[in-house]
Amino acid sequence: MSIPKIRVRNLKKYFGTKKVLDGVDLDVAQGTGLVVIGGSGSGKSVLIKSILGLVTPDSGVIEIDGVDVLKAPRAQARALREQIGMLFQNGALFDSLPVWENVAFGLLAEKKIARRFARAKAIEVLAQVGLADNVADLSPSELSGGMQKRVALARAIASEPAIMFFDEPTTGLDPIMGAVIDELIVDCVKRLGSTSIAITHDMASAVRIGDAAAMLYDGKITWTGPAAELLTTTNPLVDQFTHGRSEGPIKMALRR
């Protein structure tokens, strides 16, 4: 039994009196992909932001490579988190920089590459996500949504991270572009041998990019299983969610 790449235990986060994460337990084995599904506002983003260190949880354990990043010394926690690449929901590309500088940003920041070689390297990475070199000098705002996602993916994979996070990778894209992005994601993760966590509420996408799946509801993981079983499981919560039924055990809070 090897140590899971990422291990989360009893993770809690409250915003005021509102409990967002109420004791989340999660294991992601080395080299596998986990999809986390859950309704809007169920705390999926807070979960991965906690692992990334962008949100400080109130209590719990987050282990990367068996080391608790919440208790480890700053430098060690930073080094552990540096192996995470993140694809943000809306890309979050730096609009003040051209595409190639966006892609090479992490490499330049980590001084893995000299500035004069960065553009060529960026074009190489762009090719891996199916973009030609003529986009390299464009500004992100000149690109379509699908192309922005690709550039954001290129930026996330440029430093060949051991762990990849995807925040709703297909949201806002048409179904075909969604499938293309999913394919790229699967492709990149496989090539790099990365461990990945994707959060999504696109079931087609979840089945395509995940090995395992987990459902986050009411601040807890209420179901885990193989991603392929998402659509066939008899768990009433998952069944209602994946089939998009308004009637069922999940009561959507219309007001918060």
């Binding site: 990334l52 690449g85 943000f88 809306n90 979050a92 590309l93 730096f94 609009d95 940003f105 992490g106």
Partner: peptide
């Protein structure tokens, strides 16, 4: 305005994930 826009479009968070 610039930092605010960067904040609400996750660009500031993105910086942190890129070792900056």
């Amino acid at each position: 305005a610039e930092l605010g826009t960067m904040r609400v479009t996750d660009q500031i968070d993105a910086l942190s994930t890129l070792s900056t």
